[in-house]
Simulated scan of single mutants.
Amino acid sequence: MIPWLLLPFRDALPGFTVFRYITFRAAMAAATAMVLSILLGPWVIRTLTRLKMGQPILEDSPDTHQAKAGTPTMGGLLIVGTILASTLLWCEFHSGGIWVALVSLVGFCAVGAIDDTRKLLRKQNLGLRSWQKMLLLVAITLLVSWLILHFNLRGTATSHLSVPFFKKFRPDVGVFLVPWICLVVVGTSNAVNLTDGLDGLAIGGTLIVAATFAILAYVAGNAKMAQYLFVPFVPGGGELAVFLGAMSGASLGFLWFNAHPAEVFMGDTGSLALGGALGTVAIMIKQELLLVIAGGLFVLEAMSVILQVGSFKLRGGKRIFRMAPFHHHLELGGLKETKVVIRLWITAIVCCMLALSSLKLR
């Protein structure tokens, strides 16, 4: 909105040209989202508490988690609200990618809000059935897929994938592009959701990955940099850095309240929305395979659940981990919650550093 309002002045008056630069607007979006989150956080927490939005805790969770029962949840509304406000304040309205990212964010947030509401009404940690949640997530992703393809938001060679560490290897998924988009977006959404089990873990991981993908989006939208680094050039992709900047700032602001001991949880309202939005951006800038590396923390958590369930069913009740997701395995191994969170943040940072290094190691 601000770049649009200043359009008549930014080329005529000294100093106003800075609003043309994506890097400046992404940084301002991050700062705005963070400040809004910190300012609005106390009011949101008081409101959720007054409405008795207390988080129910699973009975088979580690004993240390039982004390968290009643902590306000659905704090994802604060995250999504500040991302929306900051993005709309600092983005260029003509960017189709921004609008698709926001559609994904809000759509997945709505599904999470329905799930959280049902849990609260039933006063137990059972919301939507798995098939109901998956059906809704796939439906939203199909809409997102149509928008991406209809407005050609993946640039040329739409169905080709970019493979990390390879310059010219561009496999073509062809007619399987839409199922591929669904796999990436829904998979990322659920992976972030599974990671959200310890104070600050999922939001800290999201902050790290969003900041990394802000850099990747900027590179993808810059023709010269994309050519130099051998990454697909996506016209307009750079504007997504503003959205990701807002996501980074909102995550940092929410972490202010979600750090141990958490004053508020994001709930499925936040985790599904953040994961879905990250997956959508990765699809639009053709870096979905790099998301597997950068989002290694989320992949680790999701794979631990898949392996645990598979082992339990195929090996007659035998488990691989003490408890899944993986962060509970570490907790039950004797590590304190804060140490588990910090070590997994470090893991996320290393994964993102590896992802960024792939831009040169080709």
Rank of each mutant, 00 (worst) to 15 (best):
residue 19 F to P: 07
residue 172 D to F: 10
residue 291 L to E: 06
residue 142 L to W: 06
residue 42 P to N: 06
residue 19 F to C: 03
residue 348 A to R: 02
residue 97 G to W: 03
residue 360 K to V: 06
residue 196 D to Q: 10
residue 328 H to Y: 14
residue 171 P to D: 02
residue 273 A to G: 14
residue 212 T to A: 07
residue 97 G to H: 03
residue 82 T to K: 01
residue 85 A to D: 05
residue 125 N to V: 15
residue 100 V to K: 03
residue 221 G to Y: 05
residue 88 L to W: 11
residue 21 Y to A: 11
residue 265 F to H: 11
residue 206 T to M: 10
residue 351 C to K: 01
residue 120 L to A: 11
residue 60 D to Y: 08
residue 160 H to E: 03
residue 32 T to E: 00
residue 362 R to Q: 12
residue 110 A to L: 15
residue 356 L to D: 12
residue 191 A to D: 00
residue 207 L to Y: 11
residue 112 G to E: 00
residue 284 M to V: 13
residue 38 I to C: 12
residue 353 M to A: 15
residue 45 I to N: 08
residue 200 G to D: 10
residue 338 T to Y: 13
residue 357 S to G: 03
residue 200 G to Y: 07
residue 124 Q to F: 03
residue 137 L to A: 05
residue 46 R to S: 11
residue 259 A to N: 11
residue 356 L to A: 04
residue 85 A to T: 13
residue 257 F to C: 06
residue 153 L to R: 01
residue 341 V to R: 05
residue 18 V to A: 12
residue 141 T to Q: 00
residue 165 F to R: 05
residue 5 L to Q: 08
residue 315 R to M: 11
residue 241 A to D: 09
residue 212 T to F: 05
residue 356 L to V: 05
residue 266 M to Y: 11
residue 56 P to D: 09
residue 346 I to Y: 14
residue 359 L to C: 04
residue 231 V to A: 03
residue 105 L to D: 04
residue 158 T to I: 12
residue 62 P to W: 03
residue 252 L to H: 02
